[in-house]
Amino acid sequence: MALLELRALCKNFGGLAAVNNLTLDVQAGSIISLIGPNGAGKSTVFNLITGIYAPTGGSIVFEHRTLNGMRPDRVTAAGIARTFQNIRLFSFMSVLENVMVGRNARMHASIADSALRTRRATREDREVEHRARELLDFFGLTSYGSEWARNLPYGMQRRLEIARALASDPRLLLLDEPGAGTNPAEKQALMRLVQSVRERGVTVLLIEHDMHLVMGISDAVHVLDYGEQIACGPPDRVRHDPRVIEAYLGKGA
């Protein structure tokens, strides 16, 4: 059984089918890419998985648990973390604190623990800070730890979002166009980073606009167009699929 299984997933906004009858498996330990033109419904799939929207039909099963309609904080606790297409960092918090917030789902300190600074709370906080610093190290952000998140250069903000997501020890990481707005060199570096994330034992579901970018690192590619899955399979096969070429370049290309 796959780590994540989408079965006949549908989401309608009024008369518009943003996602229509999507079936997709994400095997543990793989990197799966979701590609397609603008407006194809890729981000909607992420929003369905993480509980921003409830599906109109179909099911989302993660590690044998149905996630349909689960609140976002519960989904994170269940082991799925994500980044956002438009960076959504906590701007006026330090880089370190951003990552520490990311660990919230794995923390146990109650408000009373926090207010009275019980031993349990201080110990947990020390551990969380330690882990956060490790992640900053891994992402080359150590020297920015006490900087406000908004003061980071754009590419670093993208990395920080991934670091923050990993802080919750997810089994599945959803990356929504992590390379958007970065230059080609930065994009290559990001893709290497995605691979190293997988080597840490985290399965990755990746949205990307640029087909060529994901080909090298993906185990499988799913192509969406107008909410429908038009192709799926290993990168090489998908690349030459006539429907994919048509969706990207138009008919007769």
Binding site: D73, T76, F90, M93, E97, S114, D125, S168
Partner: peptide
């Protein structure tokens, strides 16, 4: 104590971006 704790960081995360805060669990 509250400010530099789990709940304090949660409050500020909500202030900065409620949707992202929810996705932090």
């Amino acid at each position: 104590n509250l400010r530099h704790s789990r709940i304090g960081r949660s409050w500020m995360a909500i202030r900065e971006d409620e949707l992202a805060a929810a996705h932090m669990g």
